[in-house]
Simulated assay, not measured.
Amino acid sequence: MQRTSVWQYLKLALGSALLAATAACSPITLLNTLTPEDTFALSEGIAYGDDPRQTLDVYTPRPAVTDAPVVVFFYGGSWNSGSRSDYKFVGEALASRGIVAVVADYRLYPQVRYPAFLQDGARAVAWTHANIRQFSGDPRKLYLMGHSSGAYNAAMLALDPTLLAAVGLSPKDLRGWIGLAGPYDFLPIENPEVKPVFFFPDSPPESQPINHISAQAPPALLMAASKDKLVDPLRNSAGLARKLREAGVPVQDLYFSRTRHTTLVATLSRPLRWLGPVLDQVTAFVRDTPVNEHAR
């Protein structure tokens, strides 16, 4: 057997072992256990509001950097589950590429419904914009990023200007945004867990990112699993990308065959990066997106 074939076999075997192990324990716990801690300095549980869920963690790259780009990350969980502590592997991945990562909690259903969790996201972005220089980040290089329902949060904050306006900011203050397997056009709602979050059957049309397209939207990088069974990539990522292009907004949309809905974000972890170049694409997008002259 050739050496390359051996390596390919070992990667597949490792991936299969990891995926099998996740059946016996939490996948996120396993990924975080395998995450190194020498690439970042972690500042935990910083409040951006008064509610216990209005807190965030900051991952500052190590060795020290100056004026680094900043990514605020929102996790998924159908707006009714999730914790910032579950996403150490995301913070480490971004910090290892010289990016200051902010992983934010936000209030969930049933405590709140739409649009309260988006208002939390806006407050987390405002806190980051005002304070990130203390953590070696440059607020003029500010990006939003999310997975699944977190990608929806990032999309709404980037596309609906009223959300950031409420905290004294604008989509022009963002250099770009990144969506992983995001639901951007999902009415009428079929998922029973999501229906009450958006007041089904009276879900407001303005809750949909695809209804907020304008030429002023920041550049976007949309990635999805080509065989995603939970969030249709053709309707959501491809559909949003098409509308953004029609409006003249710079957008890339990429689709990966080895990943599924959940493993798309898991490719940011070191053991599963072979499943798809998600981290490389994020790094290139953050590095190559032109400076927004209007950013503050």
Rank of each mutant, 00 (worst) to 15 (best):
M1Q: 10
R3E: 10
T4Y: 10
W7H: 13
W7G: 02
Q8I: 00
K11N: 06
G15T: 14
C25H: 12
C25A: 15
S26I: 08
T35N: 09
L42N: 08
L42R: 14
S43L: 03
G45F: 04
P52M: 04
D57G: 09
Y59Q: 09
P61E: 06
P63L: 04
P63R: 07
F73E: 08
G76L: 00
G82N: 10
F89E: 08
G91R: 04
A93C: 04
A93I: 07
L94N: 07
A95G: 05
V100Q: 04
A101Y: 03
A104I: 00
D105S: 06
P110T: 02
V112H: 06
D120I: 04
D120V: 04
G121C: 00
G121Y: 00
V125K: 03
V125F: 00
H129P: 01
A130F: 00
N131G: 01
L142A: 04
Y143E: 00
L144P: 09
M145A: 13
H147A: 03
H147R: 02
Y152Q: 13
N153D: 11
A155K: 10
M156T: 13
A158M: 14
D160S: 13
L163W: 07
L163Q: 14
L164M: 08
A165P: 05
V167N: 14
G168L: 05
L169G: 13
L174G: 14
I178H: 12
G179T: 07
G179Y: 05
L180I: 06
L187N: 12
I189C: 02
E190T: 14
N191C: 03
N191T: 02
P192I: 02
P196I: 04
F198W: 08
E206G: 10
S207I: 11
H212Y: 07
I213F: 13
S214I: 06
Q216E: 15
P219N: 13
L221Q: 13
L222T: 10
M223W: 07
V231P: 01
L234W: 09
N236T: 03
G239Q: 13
G239L: 10
G239N: 14
R242L: 08
K243H: 15
A247W: 09
A247Y: 11
V249S: 14
D253V: 10
D253W: 09
L254M: 11
F256I: 01
T259A: 01
R260P: 00
A266H: 03
R273V: 00
L275T: 06
G276V: 05
Q281G: 02
V282H: 11
V286D: 05
H294G: 08
H294M: 10
